[in-house]
């Protein structure tokens, strides 16, 4: 915007001032205002080009995730859908999962990678305690999600096979020092250790949280710190916190040599990874992709926690391109690349 203003303001007006006095000045001012307005409109329309688009019926819109597991699954969806159907997948700029979920419900996006536990707590504002006995968490959230009004109806597709739940983790060195293997092993030594995790682990609502955890196991930590999720591993590495709450499929656990302590009394609920889709997606794409649901469910059950940890480790720590990692894994399973052979 600066340049436009400069060009218009720089040349003629100065002459005009000498000649015309007051009148010229007012004209200049008008000129400048116009230039500014023009600049604003230009850059806005420029901006709009990025966000707009769509409209094409056979396009599946996904807003990308902010961490590798989510990005990887999204890219695999694109590979599978574009190879096996006539539909296209448009992966847009990344955003926070909560925002992405809101866009799916609104209908500006169609699909995202999510977890049954997240859908339950963060999105539907329910709690594992609300799940009736004998019903799995996965089935329960799907039936709850189906109760939403027509426009915002979403559901989870087949489970991917990963359980990306919370896991209590300590650096290997501390695990060795105190002989820690399970969360219960922490009980006698907790008062010498500082616990630290991201903020949402400390909310008073919900049951898979800090206060319920320490009450459940009878842990009495020396201190509890709430830290930004992106600085958590740095804090562990630098010894500012000793015990943390990690995610079980995170490649970073491997990088920072964190030992995951077994949740021996089964405190944490499951967080089964699954695609979350708008319920009306399959009807809408009936023409271009009659088989869409089966294609998306090709991802069902093809991962384990260890496989996902290795895949995200390859991306986050070995810096391998996400696209290559996704393609290699899918073709190693024979899910893509068959038609070309």
């Amino acid at each position: 915007m600066g340049e436009i203003k400069n060009v218009r303001g720089g040349k003629s007006p100065r002459g005009a001032k000498k000649l015309g006095g007051g009148k010229g000045l007012i004209l200049n001012r008008l000129n400048r205002a116009l230039a500014l307005l023009l600049a604003a409109v230009l850059s806005l329309s420029l901006a709009a080009c990025g966000g707009g688009g769509g409209g094409d019926e056979a396009v599946i819109v996904i807003y990308d995730g902010q961490y590798s597991e989510m990005k990887l699954i999204h890219y695999m969806v694109k590979l599978l859908v574009e190879e096996h159907t006539d539909a296209k997948v448009e992966i847009r700029e990344e955003m926070a999962p909560v925002n992405s979920y809101n866009e799916v419900v609104k209908g500006t996006a169609d699909l995202m990678n999510s977890y049954d536990g997240t859908l339950l707590t963060t999105f539907l504002h329910l709690d594992p305690a609300d799940v009736p006995a004998g019903v799995s968490l996965y089935d329960f959230v799907n039936s709850e999600a189906a109760k939403a009004e027509e426009k915002g109806r979403v559901r989870l597709l087949d489970k991917l096979g990963i359980n990306n739940t919370y896991a209590i983790a300590v650096p290997q060195q501390i695990a060795d020092q105190y002989q820690l293997n399970t969360v219960s092993d922490l009980i006698p030594v907790a008062d010498q250790l500082v616990f630290g995790a991201e903020h949402d682990f400390f909310t008073e609502e919900g049951s898979a949280k800090y206060n319920p955890l320490v009450r459940f196991y009878g842990l009495n930590f020396k201190d509890a710190r709430q830290i930004d999720i992106s600085l958590k591993y740095t804090a562990v590495e630098s010894g500012n916190i000793d015990v943390t709450c990690a995610y079980s499929t995170d490649g970073l656990n491997k990088k920072y040599q964190l030992k995951i302590l077994t949740d021996d009394r089964a405190f944490f609920p499951e967080y089964n990874g699954a695609l979350l889709a708008r319920a009306d997606l399959f009807d809408r794409l009936r023409g271009a992709a009659p088989d869409l649901e089966n294609v998306l469910n090709m991802l069902g059950g093809i991962f384990t926690d260890e496989i996902m940890t290795d895949l995200t480790y390859a991306i986050d720590v070995d810096n391998r391109p996400l696209e290559t990692v996704a393609e290699e894994y899918l073709s190693s399973l024979g899910l893509i690349g068959q038609a070309a052979d």
Binding site: M1, G2, L36, L37, A39, A40, S43, L44, L46, A47, G50
Partner: peptide, 15 residues
């Protein structure tokens, strides 16, 4: 993109 967002916002801010 970054520059365009800042530029557009600044123009509007002045206006």
């Amino acid at each position: 993109e970054h520059f365009a967002m800042v530029g557009a916002a600044l123009a509007l801010t002045i206006l």
